[in-house]
């Protein structure tokens, strides 16, 4: 049961991030919209972390910090290549 719940959480994340990737692709000639897609994807990823770890009763500052740091790195990587 726990395993199934875990997988369904991951599916939510994969679908959400895939949607943001799709928008990123669709807006490939529009710098601003493309970067908004990245911000939306990363925000969804951090929000997902809150919900997922809260439901699993493992929500701590250290865990959320890890997501924020990785989300931050990903945002900066895109910002650098897109020339934001």
């Amino acid at each position: 049961m726990e395993e199934k719940k875990h997988i369904s959480h991951l599916i939510f994340l994969f679908v959400g991030l895939s949607v943001s990737f799709l928008f990123f692709f669709l807006f490939r000639f529009n710098l601003r919209y493309q970067f908004f897609s990245v911000l939306a994807g990363v925000s969804y990823y951090v929000l997902w972390a809150f919900v997922h770890h809260y439901l699993e009763d493992r929500l701590t500052f250290q865990i959320i910090l890890e997501y924020v740091l990785i989300g931050g790195i990903v945002t900066l990587l895109f910002a650098m290549v897109l020339g934001i």
Partner: peptide, 18 residues
């Protein structure tokens, strides 16, 4: 006791492909 490794891997994979 840390974040979900698969979640990080998936995000980074999408970033690399993008």
């Amino acid at each position: 006791l840390n974040g979900h490794t698969l979640a990080h891997i998936f995000l980074l994979m999408l970033a690399i492909v993008s």
